[in-house]
């Protein structure tokens, strides 16, 4: 049998869990990991400490590139797959290189969701997903006194905490899209607001942005924003952080022939419509009879498990994803499910 070339798109926890299993199970195969980020595999949840400069970048690294060399794994960092041709089993990279695979594992994760209603001024939003965002955020913070947080998700709560600790004013706008994909009841919303207020953030409930205008910032050469809302408030701030959750990063798979809904549709073996293509982690959309719904994983542990399951199946075993264990973020007594999000709620 000709030797396999496993290509993994993504270099997060799901990808790395899979890579370990693949290397172990098929020592002579070619393995290539392609990641959009030009930075080795790192702890994403520690990004806020990079923002606050409590940690240096290299302190959040899980695995340095040397690890991959030792394991005879080709690590392609900072490279973006633009198109997948399943018939030719070829990936087309943004820098115009082709990569051929025999089996493909998609661990391309999520990307910050910007609701379409905000498209007109989306370029004024600052997002935090990857390390480059954290760097940018950190850099921008230098000239920032007042931050407007819109949306609201797990990351935003942590960042708010960090910002307040760094002595910045935080204004939190909880609108109808906040805490997507959860639907907040009025009660929970009020509770959130109270807790945020207790921490020192200012909270606006039940309002939404209708326009953002860039204006000169407090320091020369910086820029600030004038934000208008549905309730005709005018808010001045130096930075607008957008936190509307993550959506699977699957746009490059459109018209590849894979089934894409919100995420990549896979069965409970994490196999896609194409027998040589699997998906794991935050980009996979899985039907789970136990919860009677499609689900998309959230969180480190889920992603790791899914990565392993996918890899085992790629090696010819038969592992199933199973139901995710329920775990919750305890935000001072308020429980938020951090295990998965349902596609429809």
């Amino acid at each position: 049998m000709a030797s396999e070339h496993y290509v993994i798109i993504g270099n997060g926890v799901a990808a790395n869990a899979a890579v370990d299993i693949l290397r172990q199970g098929d020592p002579d195969s070619r393995i290539t990991v392609i990641s959009r980020e030009f930075f080795p595999f790192y702890y994403r949840h520690k990004l806020r400490f990079v923002i606050s400069e409590e940690l240096q970048e290299d302190q959040i690294v899980v695995r340095p590139p040397a690890h991959y060399r030792e394991q005879n794994i080709r690590l392609r960092l900072g490279q973006e797959v633009q198109r997948v041709d399943l018939k030719e089993k070829t990936l087309y990279l943004k820098h115009m290189e082709k990569v051929h695979f025999t089996r493909l594992l998609l661990c391309c994760g999520g990307w910050p969701r910007i609701p379409e209603v905000h498209y007109t001024y989306r370029h004024h939003f600052t997002i935090v997903k990857g390390l480059s965002h954290a760097r940018e955020f950190k850099e921008k913070l230098a000239g920032v006194k007042r931050v407007l947080m819109v949306g609201g998700d797990l990351v935003s709560l942590r960042i708010t905490e960090t910002l307040l600790r760094m002595g910045r004013e935080v204004l939190f706008l909880i609108d109808r899209d906040s805490f997507w994909p959860l639907t907040l009841t009025d009660e929970i919303r009020t509770e959130f607001a109270e807790r945020l207020t207790k921490h020192g953030a200012e909270v606006l409930i039940d309002d939404e942005i209708t326009g953002i205008e860039e204006v000169a910032g407090i320091e020369e050469g910086t820029s600030g924003y004038e934000v208008t809302t549905r309730r005709e408030k005018r808010i001045s701030c130096d930075l607008v952080g957008a936190f509307f959750g993550l959506v699977p990063n699957v746009e490059f798979l459109f018209s590849s022939g894979l089934d894409i809904d919100r995420g990549i549709l896979v069965d409970d073996h994490l196999q896609s419509r194409n027998p040589d293509v699997y998906a794991a982690g935050d980009c996979a959309q899985i039907w789970n009879p136990a919860i009677n719904n499609y689900w998309v994983s959230i969180g480190w542990e889920n992603a790791r498990l899914l990565g392993e399951v996918a890899a085992r199946n790629m090696l010819g075993e038969s592992a199933t994803a199973g139901a995710p264990k329920e775990s919750a973020l305890d935000y001072e007594g308020l429980k938020i499910n951090t295990s998965w999000w349902h596609i429809y709620d």
Binding site: E116, V117, Y119, D261, R262, Y294, I343, Y344
Partner: peptide, 9 residues
Amino acid sequence: RENIRIESL
């Protein structure tokens, strides 16, 4: 953008 949701599947 007009805030219409698309529910798939």
